[in-house]
Design a protein around this nucleic acid. Structure first.
Length: 640
RNA sequence: GCUGGUGUAGCUCAAUCGGUAGAGCGGCGCAUUCGUAAUGCGCAGGUCAGCGGUUCAAAUCCGCUCACCAGCUCCA
């Protein structure tokens, strides 16, 4: 049967007839074989398709050049096959899976001895040979039975085949190498122009730590050398933003071996940033009728048994015993807040009741997961619990969501993802609460997001045992995402503690509860902020806001007067009294990323002005003290 | 926790084949008094992550522990 397709090549359009099931490469080879030097594949209905897969229905096909992002997945996927082919030639391995990822590709495989740096060099050399021989890539659909015979010596591929529902599976070949694969792929191996194998690490088959341990090699490739160089440059630049590096450079915080892994000490510079944020946080919460509470760091284990945490998270809690009584170092603040709520009989008229606390909690995290300030064992949550009635749920969730967005926008975040985590519909038994409650809660979360036209990702099975949640994930310098703000629905804990209110009907009703943290934790949020700002904190947060730089020690007396004026106006200011050249003092202040430098020489003393240099913009001219002071104060007030 | 890698002065890093630790920055002292990103000279600073082993001799080789890095897994 013939079908009509419309081809878009650059700006040219042509309509052609092809036999159903033909691969596009057949058609194009006849028309113009050099076309494969420029184009990687086609996009049909917004999806990328390679030249190998058969055309089964008519439609519009736009040819996609190599430098288009749409083609990268094929580019990377083919490079991963080239790598696998090279490895197969050199070593005895059992290939598992090798997909393209957001940036680059990897291949997982089972091998007795680990890969070394030397091995990566050898593999790269072999890959170059494969690229040079420009092996054509072939596509085939075969019966599952046949595929099982073909991959009979590979338990991983066999397991994959068993998981495919279709009767047919697709395979791609290049030279002697054949892999079970969904594609897409490039026309031939020679289309890969430059690649780099980046790292070796471990992984588990199917991501399950109880199953086979595999080795994974990560790599990246691009259609020209410059793009690869740019990628490596970008990566190196991003690494300079790492909060662990900047934290040391700017003396913000440190984690000490003597104290323990995952426990952060905030140095004065970091503590100031946190102080400012806490002040801001408190003000915003009091404005919104939150009541601030404080609770102790430890509690009897019974409290956590009642809350249910003891059953679910015992392994992750720090416990100890005293006078025959078992205690827990608090991993959460909510049970304490519940007790405060429960202390009085509550009326529906009191609701919502909102308790907020900067509560420091401790959770044992596995050693391999710790990461600077982004993943720690002791941290301070900006926690709050909202107790409300069923019909208040939606309004409260909406308000919290808006509050969270306001907070993170204050810090200039634009790059974040919103996730809606709901329960796994196949394993409802893993969760507390009734279907009706889950549906009610989920619909409140969904309508909050949809009323605001928020684009979000729905994650099934990611909910907490006690309810669904909205998570906001922020990205670090290297693009790894971390959970920041979170809004969690809870119908479990109020039941467990029997937390109720008296309704209009005079009867007792179970109260509903929302857990929420807007920063998440100070440790993680500030860690993220360091990377987000690249250490260039806005004036309101900058540890030192102004530094005074007298040109010689002749101006020190005058500088001290300026220092006093600024201090009287609550500016964090220091005076560089060192016997150094001006350019040296400027260099040091720039390295410390101090927003304002006041240069004071005899000229300035005479005119009663200071020469101002801005960290970002350099010399911005001379100002009277009053003028520059009010400019800076304005900036601080507006949190810019 | 798992796989692999790393750990030397406050920081960044060097030390060949196992022969007894070195530089820059920072700190301190002296000189210099300087106009928009590094003035010169001098001095101090080390349990080579920790513990154990091999050796005439260990930063270097081996074992264990701890910490860090990348990834996996996990994350109330």
């Amino acid at each position: 049967m013939k079908i009509k397709i419309k081809l878009y090549i650059d700006k040219e359009t042509s309509t052609i007839e092809v036999e159903k099931g033909t691969a596009l490469k057949q058609v194009l080879k006849e028309r113009n074989p050099s076309i494969f030097n420029k184009f990687a594949g086609v996009v049909k209905d917004g999806n990328f398709m390679d030249f190998h897969s058969p055309i089964n229905e008519s439609g519009e096909f736009q040819l996609i050049p190599y430098n288009d992002k749409m083609s990268y997945s094929a580019y990377w996927h083919t490079t991963s096959h080239i790598m696998a082919q090279a490895i197969k030639r050199l070593y005895k391995v059992n290939l598992a899976i090798g997909p393209s990822i957001e940036e680059g590709f990897y291949y997982d495989m089972e091998k007795e001895t680990p890969f070394s740096e030397e091995d990566l060099k050898k593999i790269s050399e072999e890959m170059k040979k494969i690229i040079k021989s420009d092996l054509p890539i072939e596509y085939k659909e075969i019966k599952k039975k046949e595929a099982k015979k073909l991959f009979s010596d590979n338990k991983f591929k066999l397991e994959l085949i068993d998981g495919i529902e279709d009767d047919f599976v697709s395979i791609y070949s290049q030279g002697e190498f054949t892999d079970l694969c969904r594609g897409p792929h490039l026309y031939s191996t020679g289309k890969v122009k430059d690649f780099k194998l980046l790292s070796v690490s471990g992984s588990y088959w199917r991501g399950d730590e109880k199953r086979e341990s595999l080795q994974r090699i990560y790599g990246i490739s691009y259609p020209d050398k410059k793009m690869l160089k740019d990628y490596i440059y970008r990566y190196e630049e991003a690494k300079k933003r790492d909060h662990r590096k900047l934290g040391k450079q700017l003396d913000l915080f440190n984690i000490y071996d003597e104290i323990g892994a995952g426990l952060v000490l905030w140095h004065p510079n970091g503590a100031i940033i946190r102080e400012e944020m806490e002040t801001f946080w408190k003000k915003e919460h009091l404005n919104r009728d939150y009541k601030i509470v404080r609770t102790p760091h430890i509690a009897k284990a019974d409290l956590w048994k009642t809350s249910g945490h003891f059953d679910y998270y015992l392994e992750n809690m720090y416990t100890f015993e005293r006078d025959g009584e078992e205690y827990v170092v608090k991993p959460m603040n909510c049970p304490y807040h519940i007790l405060i709520y429960k202390k009085q009989t509550r009326s529906y008229r009191d609701l919502p009741i909102k308790y907020a606390e900067l509560g420091t909690v401790y959770r044992y995290e596995r050693s391999g997961t710790l990461h600077g300030m982004l993943r720690v064992r002791g941290f301070t949550q900006d926690d709050a619990h909202i107790f409300c009635s069923e019909d208040q749920i939606e309004k409260e969730i909406g308000e919290v969501f808006d509050f969270a967005m306001e907070m993170i926008k204050t810090f200039g975040y634009k790059d974040f993802e919103i996730h809606l985590s709901v329960r796994d519909p196949r394993h409802k038994e893993k969760y507390a609460g009734s279907d009706r409650e889950w549906e009610k809660a989920e619909s409140a979360l969904v309508s909050t997001l949809e009323n605001r036209k928020i684009i979000y990702k729905r994650d099934e099975g990611e909910a907490v045992f006690y309810g669904p949640k909205i998570d906001i994930k922020i990205k670090d310098a290297l693009g790894r995402s971390w959970q920041g703000p979170t809004i969690q629905f809870d119908f479990n804990i109020p039941h467990r503690f029997n937390a109720t209110y008296i309704g209009e009907d005079g009867k007792e009703h179970m109260v509903y509860m929302v857990h929420r943290a807007l920063f998440g934790s100070f440790e993680r949020f500030v860690g993220g902020l360091i990377e987000h700002y690249n250490g260039n904190f806005p004036t309101w947060l900058a540890p030192t806001q102004v530094i005074l730089l007298p040109i010689t020690n002749e101006q020190i007396d005058f500088s001290k007067q300026v220092l006093k004026t600024l201090k009287d106006n609550d500016i964090r200011v220091t005076l560089d009294e060192r016997n150094e050249k001006l350019s040296k003092k400027i260099r040091d202040a720039e390295t410390k990323k101090i927003p304002y430098m006041f240069i004071i020489g005899n000229k300035e003393i005479e005119s009663k002005k200071v020469s101002v240099r801005n960290h970002k913009d350099g010399d911005i001219g001379s100002f009277s003290i009053e003028d520059i002071l009010s400019k800076i104060k304005e900036e601080i007030k507006k949190r810019r």
